[in-house]
Amino acid sequence: MATHDAQGNSLFVVDSPDLIAKTADSVYRERDDIRNNELVATPSMVSVRCEPQQEVRLPVYSDTQCPAPLVISSPCIAYVHFPLRSTFKSDVTVLHDGQCEVHFSYDFVTAQQLENGDILVNGGNGGAGGSQTGDCATLKPYLEIEEAIALHQNALMRESAAITQP
């Protein structure tokens, strides 16, 4: 969603639904170690980091010589964390009135998108955890990819409506 200054100039745009969809597709296509339907989502899975003179060095493969890496300048890089479904560990506590609390942990993989649109699928991995409360019947510590895309699209629609208010 575009942010505008007093002169109406855009400051930043992050189309996070598009980012989630594109990077998930690339991870499934490029990483043989990620099984189909293994990627899930969280509401806060998208971030962008900008750093002056930031560049990415990509290995160039050759059977006959040792080529220099491909260097791409990208001061800003978008990161998308994908929790891995099979790594989730959770501990559910029943509270009251049908409410439950779940503590969970999981491993995730990270995909990146550069300013030129290139997507990198080995951007790192790690572990994360947290807690969540809600109805016991529906409480789930993660979202499906399609749910996250819909959630972000809905947020963009609300944001767009707010910005265009007279």
Binding site: V13, S26, L58, A78, Y79, Q112, G117, D118, V121, N125
Partner: peptide, 26 residues
Amino acid sequence: APQSSAKTLQKAGVASGSQESSFAVD
């Protein structure tokens, strides 16, 4: 969240600049 400190990454099977970026920042 150990990011790619060496910034040496595997590039997805897309040609450089072949698709529009999903973000832009000024």
